[in-house]
Measured scan of single mutants.
Amino acid sequence: MQFKLIINGKTLKGEITIEAVDAAEAEKFFKQYANDNGIDGEWTYDDATKTFTVTE
């Protein structure tokens, strides 16, 4: 399945899409990606669109 991350950071904005087995695997990848890029904010997930959003 495809999952999307929308980044609304103070210094980094954009979107990335990955293939993952389930939402838990996608969330783990996205949170590591955000951590690696210094993004720390509020997370939301929309199951209907398979979209995670992080907002700083």
Score class of each variant (00 low, 15 high):
28 K>Y: 09
20 A>K: 03
28 K>Q: 03
56 E>C: 05
31 K>V: 11
6 I>Y: 14
19 E>N: 06
11 T>V: 09
9 G>A: 10
17 T>Q: 07
36 D>L: 14
15 E>L: 10
45 Y>D: 00
23 A>T: 13
41 G>E: 01
23 A>L: 15
32 Q>P: 02
29 F>N: 05
9 G>L: 04
7 I>D: 01
18 I>P: 00
5 L>I: 07
34 A>G: 15
52 F>Y: 15
51 T>H: 12
30 F>E: 00
40 D>S: 06
16 I>Y: 04
27 E>N: 08
35 N>V: 10
52 F>H: 04
3 F>C: 02
14 G>W: 10
2 Q>N: 15
52 F>T: 01
18 I>C: 03
31 K>E: 05
56 E>F: 11
36 D>R: 13
33 Y>F: 05
11 T>I: 06
35 N>A: 13
38 G>K: 15
4 K>L: 07
7 I>M: 09
23 A>Q: 13
53 T>C: 03
28 K>C: 03
36 D>F: 14
42 E>Y: 15
29 F>W: 14
20 A>C: 03
14 G>Y: 05
53 T>F: 09
19 E>S: 08
38 G>A: 10
44 T>H: 14
54 V>R: 00
49 T>V: 15
52 F>C: 01
25 E>S: 11
41 G>M: 02
12 L>N: 08
6 I>H: 14
40 D>W: 03
1 M>P: 06
10 K>A: 10
30 F>V: 10
24 A>K: 11
41 G>T: 01
37 N>T: 12
20 A>H: 06
23 A>M: 13
5 L>F: 15
2 Q>Y: 04
9 G>C: 02
8 N>A: 09
45 Y>A: 01
3 F>S: 01
39 I>D: 01
4 K>R: 09
47 D>L: 06
10 K>Y: 13
48 A>I: 15
4 K>N: 13
6 I>N: 09
39 I>R: 01
47 D>H: 09
55 T>Q: 10
34 A>V: 06
13 K>W: 05
15 E>W: 13
4 K>M: 04
48 A>S: 14
31 K>W: 06
26 A>W: 00
38 G>Q: 08
13 K>P: 15
26 A>H: 00
47 D>Q: 13
10 K>Q: 04
13 K>R: 08
52 F>M: 10
54 V>W: 01
31 K>L: 04
45 Y>F: 03
25 E>Y: 11
6 I>A: 12
36 D>K: 12
2 Q>S: 14
42 E>R: 12
23 A>W: 14
3 F>H: 07
3 F>T: 01
31 K>S: 09
25 E>T: 15
20 A>L: 10
47 D>E: 13
18 I>Q: 13
35 N>Q: 13
3 F>N: 00
29 F>H: 08
25 E>C: 02
45 Y>W: 14
18 I>L: 12
51 T>S: 07
27 E>W: 04
40 D>K: 09
25 E>A: 10
27 E>A: 07
28 K>N: 11
22 D>H: 04
43 W>T: 01
46 D>L: 13
12 L>A: 03
20 A>T: 14
32 Q>I: 11
15 E>P: 04
19 E>Y: 03
5 L>R: 00
47 D>W: 05
13 K>H: 12
23 A>K: 14
4 K>Q: 05
41 G>A: 03
33 Y>Q: 08
27 E>T: 14
50 K>N: 11
13 K>G: 10
3 F>M: 02
54 V>K: 00
13 K>L: 09
7 I>F: 13
11 T>F: 06
54 V>E: 00
18 I>A: 13
29 F>V: 14
8 N>S: 14
17 T>V: 13
46 D>P: 01
21 V>K: 15
36 D>P: 01
43 W>Q: 01
53 T>I: 04
45 Y>C: 01
42 E>V: 11
8 N>I: 05
55 T>G: 03
51 T>M: 12
22 D>G: 12
8 N>G: 11
44 T>G: 06
42 E>I: 09
55 T>M: 13
4 K>T: 07
4 K>G: 08
45 Y>N: 01
16 I>W: 04
45 Y>E: 01
19 E>R: 02
44 T>S: 08
2 Q>T: 15
12 L>S: 15
33 Y>W: 09
26 A>M: 01
50 K>C: 03
45 Y>H: 02
22 D>F: 09
18 I>V: 06
26 A>C: 02
28 K>M: 07
44 T>Y: 12
52 F>P: 00
11 T>P: 08
55 T>A: 15
23 A>I: 12
29 F>D: 03
28 K>T: 06
34 A>M: 08
30 F>W: 02
4 K>P: 00
41 G>K: 01
1 M>W: 04
20 A>V: 12
6 I>V: 13
15 E>R: 06
51 T>V: 13
39 I>S: 02
54 V>D: 00
8 N>D: 09
30 F>K: 00
27 E>Q: 14
1 M>A: 03
45 Y>K: 02
29 F>A: 07
14 G>L: 04
36 D>Q: 08
38 G>T: 14
34 A>W: 06
17 T>Y: 10
34 A>L: 07
39 I>Y: 15
23 A>P: 13
44 T>P: 00
35 N>P: 02
44 T>N: 13
36 D>W: 09
55 T>R: 14
55 T>L: 12
8 N>C: 07
43 W>D: 00
13 K>D: 04
11 T>L: 08
36 D>M: 10
29 F>S: 08
49 T>W: 07
17 T>K: 15
5 L>K: 00
56 E>N: 10
39 I>Q: 11
25 E>V: 05
15 E>K: 07
5 L>V: 04
51 T>D: 02
37 N>Y: 09
30 F>Y: 12
28 K>H: 07
56 E>M: 05
35 N>H: 09
47 D>P: 10
27 E>I: 10
34 A>K: 02
1 M>L: 10
30 F>M: 08
32 Q>G: 06
17 T>N: 07
31 K>N: 10
20 A>S: 11
7 I>N: 01
37 N>P: 01
48 A>L: 13
27 E>V: 14
50 K>Y: 10
13 K>F: 07
20 A>N: 08
38 G>H: 10
47 D>A: 11
3 F>A: 01
54 V>Y: 02
37 N>S: 05
12 L>G: 05
46 D>F: 03
2 Q>W: 15
48 A>W: 13
51 T>A: 11
52 F>E: 00
21 V>Q: 10
16 I>D: 02
45 Y>Q: 02
2 Q>D: 15
24 A>R: 02
1 M>C: 02
5 L>A: 03
16 I>L: 15
24 A>E: 06
5 L>Q: 00
50 K>H: 13
52 F>V: 01
47 D>S: 09
51 T>F: 06
33 Y>E: 02
9 G>F: 12
33 Y>I: 03
37 N>V: 05
25 E>Q: 15
32 Q>L: 08
39 I>W: 09
48 A>F: 11
56 E>Y: 13
7 I>L: 12
22 D>S: 08
42 E>P: 04
9 G>N: 10
8 N>P: 03
2 Q>R: 10
37 N>R: 11
40 D>V: 04
12 L>T: 15
11 T>N: 07
26 A>K: 00
45 Y>I: 03
9 G>K: 13
33 Y>P: 00
2 Q>F: 12
34 A>S: 10
32 Q>R: 11
27 E>M: 06
56 E>R: 08
18 I>T: 13
46 D>H: 09
30 F>S: 04
20 A>P: 02
54 V>F: 05
50 K>L: 10
26 A>T: 01
42 E>M: 15
30 F>Q: 00
16 I>V: 02
37 N>G: 10
53 T>S: 14
13 K>N: 15
18 I>E: 03
9 G>S: 03
55 T>P: 01
44 T>R: 13
19 E>Q: 03
40 D>I: 10
30 F>H: 01
12 L>W: 07
41 G>C: 01
7 I>R: 02
15 E>H: 09
26 A>V: 04
16 I>M: 09
25 E>W: 12
50 K>M: 02
5 L>S: 01
29 F>P: 01
46 D>K: 06
28 K>E: 11
31 K>Q: 12
21 V>M: 15
39 I>M: 07
